[in-house]
Simulated assay, not measured.
Amino acid sequence: MSIATPRRSALAAELRETFSAPGDALVGVEEELMLLDPETLDLTPRAADVLAAGAEDERLRLEMPAAQIEVVLPPAPTVDAAAAALGAARADLASRADGLAVLAGAGTHPFTAAEGVLNPHPRYAEMVRDFGATARRQLVFGLHAHVCVRGPERVVAVHDALRSYLPDVAALAANAPFADGRDAGMASVRPGISELLPRQGVPPALGDLDGLAAALEWGAASGRVPGPHRWWWQLRLHPTHGTIEVRVADAQATVADARAVVALIRALVHRLAERHDAGETLPVAPTWRIEENAWVAARDGLDARLADLRTGEVRPVADRLRALVQDLGPTAERLGDGGALAAAETLIADGGGAARQRAAAGGDGRAAAAFLAERFLAG
């Protein structure tokens, strides 16, 4: 079901202006990282202390959990440039945190308590007021990619078609097999925790920018969505940056893995835009069918078997991803991301982050945390 198209509003006109403005084909990366106690390796709520330990750094920001720091990078011309910047930011953050915390990247912490400490910011106090203990359960860590796409009709067509690929990206990036100190039997428990809040998971198809404007206006009028910052879907059009923001991926253990995931996302967005430009009507699948694949991807990761959204034919996601990488190759080369996209093949071949965590942990959550901390600056 698509969001109904209303009459044109001032917000719709503003959105059309944002996505019509000239913009370079850049890629932006954000990742949410966990702070661990140096002795216990449990989450430690010292993000504010770490940020206060040195000069102000615009790349490093507080997030809702007090044991989380978000790295927000400026837009880059290629995925390799973004990966280099991410590696530098990780190194600088680890140096700043020395003596206070160690860093790790994954979708969830392997053994911490279900509820955690939140940062004392009015925005997060509002979250507790609205959602209570559910807000304190949001100890989840994601990798977000922003891709610049221009043209109001074009960006909506890409957004609505891209929804169908969210389970494939989630399977590639699944990196959260543990919760509450035990193996949860999932490749990623992060979606289940996130979806305790509203407006999570697979977004509705928009149809056009008027539909997005109507949704945001209804949310503001009802008080349920006080601003676009609470439009939390795994995929969204960012009205400030004028980007397609893909939020489905778990945080990755290494920069190399993040590079591979972001390269796939960026090439996929641009390939869909190319198909639209060639006059193709991009398919828009029913949300519930995508959600069926999303559940299996969260459970099985790169071992998942996903269904064709038109025929229902089931196929291993690893085969789907390999075919997708081949299809995206020429697009990635044009973007300067050929080598980065090829790294996705390595991630597919070795089973991904969840499999690595399980192999390293041997059923021990603390061993998993130690593995993640050791891998944080790998390479």
Rank of each mutant, 00 (worst) to 15 (best):
R163W: 03
P110L: 02
A135H: 06
Q357A: 03
R123K: 13
D303W: 12
G353Y: 00
A85I: 02
A47S: 10
L35N: 03
Y165Q: 09
H229D: 13
A258M: 03
E245A: 09
E39K: 15
T134K: 13
R310L: 15
A12L: 01
I265A: 04
L309K: 00
L309T: 08
A97S: 07
R334L: 12
N293G: 04
E63S: 10
G192Y: 12
G107E: 04
P316G: 02
P198Q: 12
E217Y: 04
V246P: 07
P204L: 11
G28A: 05
P226F: 02
H109S: 03
A340E: 05
A184T: 12
A21I: 07
P22K: 08
D319T: 15
H229V: 14
R322Y: 05
W288I: 13
G301I: 09
C148K: 15
A349M: 09
A256H: 09
Y165W: 10
W288P: 14
Q138K: 02
Y165S: 10
V202P: 10
V71L: 12
P191V: 00
R266C: 04
A273R: 11
G301Y: 01
L100V: 07
A104R: 00
L309A: 07
A173P: 10
L196P: 12
G227P: 13
R358C: 08
A349G: 14
E58S: 11
V158K: 04
R190A: 03
Y165V: 06
P226N: 13
R310Q: 15
Q68A: 09
H241C: 14
T281Y: 04
P45I: 07
R275H: 06
E313L: 14
A354V: 09
H109A: 01
A298F: 00
G312D: 08
G312M: 05
E39N: 12
A12H: 00
A173G: 07
P77E: 11
S222F: 06
A251M: 10
E333R: 14
P330H: 02
T134Q: 14
T78H: 10
E313K: 11
L118E: 06
P152G: 00
P122L: 06
L103Y: 01
P120L: 04
E291C: 12
G54M: 02
A52C: 12
V261H: 00
R305E: 15
G132L: 03
F131E: 09
G339K: 07
V102Y: 01
A256W: 01
P316T: 07
E115A: 15
A304K: 09
I348V: 14
L43E: 04
R305G: 12
L377P: 06
V202T: 14
L237Y: 01
P45L: 11
D57K: 01
I348N: 00
T240Y: 10
R230F: 14
I3W: 12
A114Q: 06
V128N: 02
G151V: 14
